[in-house]
Design a protein around this nucleic acid. Structure first.
Lengths: 203, 203
DNA sequence: TGTACATCAGTGAACGCGCGTTCACTGATGTAC
DNA sequence: TGTACATCAGTGAACGCGCGTTCACTGATGTAC
């Protein structure tokens, strides 16, 4: 692909180069210099668009949280067709996102950058969290008040289970994988929902 | 602390220096040179005891898996006083290990080194896994055969939940922490066990 | 339509730094006599 | 108990490398007239 002196859309090209590097070699494998090289550009050119290495990485994570939040929102679909189905769908969406956007996922959760250090990162991360919380909130309304755990606790459980499944069983990090990650998450959430009293024991 | 030309037990001193570095600054923060400096020794001295940077890191992880396996085994205690109590104890032990040995934990799970690449790492990791599997196996025997999920699936669920809780809620990575990690894991496993039919709904 | 000019995205060379690793060496330790 | 010597853990200097970052520059682009 030929190009002249000016690139056209270097900013986004750098983001995508970073994504490829991270997806391929892990968050460690990303360097500003290699991202620049992959975008066919001098390292110094990066500074026209980003404050530096961390700023580029933060933008990758930010875009990741954007997509993530949108996918969760889409899966939740305002609690349709039922609170239960919507909740299960958000769990599946979590895993689907991790599988489909490995570069984003690793930038978000494994790159070692602190949200809060980069403006806008924390807020877009909170948005994703909010969707999960809402799904749990809707779900929990189906329970009698006397046996209704806090919604934020339930969303934390599912978030943690999903994250653990991704880290240990979607990538190779947990040794041999006894089960496909999707099946693990599906069955795990199923048993959990039964424990909440939201699925019958025969289900 | 004074010492002469010879260190005495440099090998273990380096391991502990690495542990401190990792616990303090994350797995990224560990370098062979800084570990050597912390042990009051020239970087070249490291090569008397390790093949290189990765070998030192692998030894840290190996010792971690050793402790981890021992703690799980101790918590499981051959299924005493009951299969259920022993299983819950192994879950708590997972989290307790992560809290008490953060350097080891991060070397094991967040340092990006592949088990299998380092002899002995995979086997000692498998040992830890085996204890969890056994705890699940004992547990599952309390269920009627018709509703008995595979033990390896159950241990994978709990492993994933525990890992997720550690990654997201023990460290700051998940944003604001709505609940103490120990409480989250305890309640999560409780609901899960109820879903398996091993705890009564009133529990 | 053609020319002068301002803008600014990207160049290329250079920097200081810390990294992992190597090598010939040195000097403390422990053993043989 | 004292001396000669082998061992080998740690030194210190050096290496090549890739990193993030800076700087004065250059040349493509688009606008004003």
């Amino acid at each position: 692909m030929k190009r002249g002196y000016h690139h056209g859309n270097l900013r986004q090209a750098l983001v995508e180069a970073a994504l490829d590097l991270i997806a391929e070699k892990g968050p460690q494998g990303f360097t500003l210099s290699e991202a620049a090289k992959a975008a066919d550009v001098t390292p110094a050119a990066v500074y026209r668009h980003f404050a530096g290495r961390d700023d580029l990485l933060a933008e990758v994570a930010r875009q990741g949280f954007d997509i993530f939040a949108a996918l969760l929102e889409y899966a939740y679909d305002e609690g349709r067709p039922s609170a239960l189905a919507a909740f299960e769908a958000t769990g599946r969406a979590y895993l689907a996102f991790a599988r489909k956007y490995p570069g984003h996922y690793q930038a978000m959760f494994e790159s070692g950058l602190q949200p809060g250090q980069h403006a806008g990162l924390a807020s877009v991360a909170a948005k994703a969290r909010g969707t999960m919380d809402r799904a749990a909130e809707t779900l929990v309304r189906g329970l009698p008040e006397s046996r209704r755990p806090p919604a934020s606790m339930i969303s934390a459980h599912v978030w943690a289970l999903s994250h653990g499944v991704v880290e240990l069983f979607l990538r190779g990090n947990g040794g041999p994988q006894p089960w496909p990650a999707e099946d693990l998450l599906e069955t795990g959430i199923g048993i959990y929902l039964r424990g909440l009293g939201l699925l019958s024991p025969d289900h």
